[in-house]
């Protein structure tokens, strides 16, 4: 970030005809398939890698749709049952005046997942296209995506805790809904998309200019 202009040209392992290990950094001849130091699989950049990212990302978006349409949890109280979707749960929390917690759930379940879809798609597209955003900023974006993804699981945990606490022996019962499953899958799939993204592609584009 400190240098907004073009950084001085730096020789990469690929330029030197070598393959660097993304786990431990050891450099190998291109003929090596597995890292001699840590045993991780070695990859030169390959496009198949990016296709894996797209596949996970699309799967994540697809299961995110039912996660929002179906109930996340059902509350049965005094004979009548109310079902709550993710958004419905947020609205209810605001009704009770818990704005802070409503904000946490809203950010974790809606803002973060959607922002992640956009960010990963953006990073995937910009590996082959020239964009205004510098490699430094895209690298930062990737680190944020990688760090923040797991926090979306909050709502699934909340549903689990609520259902284990509030059972038949009380006036109310809370049972998890089908959306809990598709939401958990969506988070897992997007995490897979971020994990299979090859960070080095961000910097390659800079070099090809």
């Amino acid at each position: 970030m400190e240098n907004a202009g073009r950084p001085p040209h730096i020789l990469t392992a690929r330029d030197a005809g070598l393959v660097g290990c993304t786990q431990c950094g050891k450099v190998h001849l291109p003929s090596a398939a597995v890292c001699g130091r840590c045993g991780a699989a070695l990859h030169a950049r390959d496009i198949a890698n990016l296709q894996k990212v797209w596949a996970w990302l699309i799967a994540g978006i697809v299961v995110y749709i039912p996660a929002n349409l179906y109930p996340m949890l059902a509350t049965a109280s005094l004979g009548h049952t109310t079902e709550n979707t993710i958004l419905g749960g947020v609205v209810e929390l605001m009704h009770h005046g818990s704005y802070g917690v409503a904000a946490i759930v809203f950010v974790a379940s809606i803002i973060i997942p959607v922002a992640k879809f956009i960010a990963i798609a953006f990073l995937g597209l910009t590996t082959t296209r020239r964009v205004r955003m510098s490699a430094h900023h895209r690298h930062l974006l990737f680190e944020v995506v990688e760090f923040i993804g797991r926090w979306s699981m909050i709502d699934v945990f909340v549903v689990a805790i609520l259902s284990s606490l509030v059972r038949l022996d009380f006036a109310a019962t809370i049972t998890p809904g089908i959306a809990a499953i598709s939401f958990a899958l969506s988070v897992a799939f997007t995490m897979m998309a971020a994990l299979s993204f090859d960070e080095r592609l961000i910097w390659d584009a800079l070099e090809d200019e």
Binding site: G149, W151, V158, L165
Partner: peptide
């Protein structure tokens, strides 16, 4: 990335408010 203990803690806090 898959060990989510700290996320669970925040989940507990949210559940407490809800209940």
């Amino acid at each position: 990335p898959w060990a989510m203990a700290e996320v669970f803690i925040v989940g507990v806090a949210v559940a407490l408010v809800k209940v």
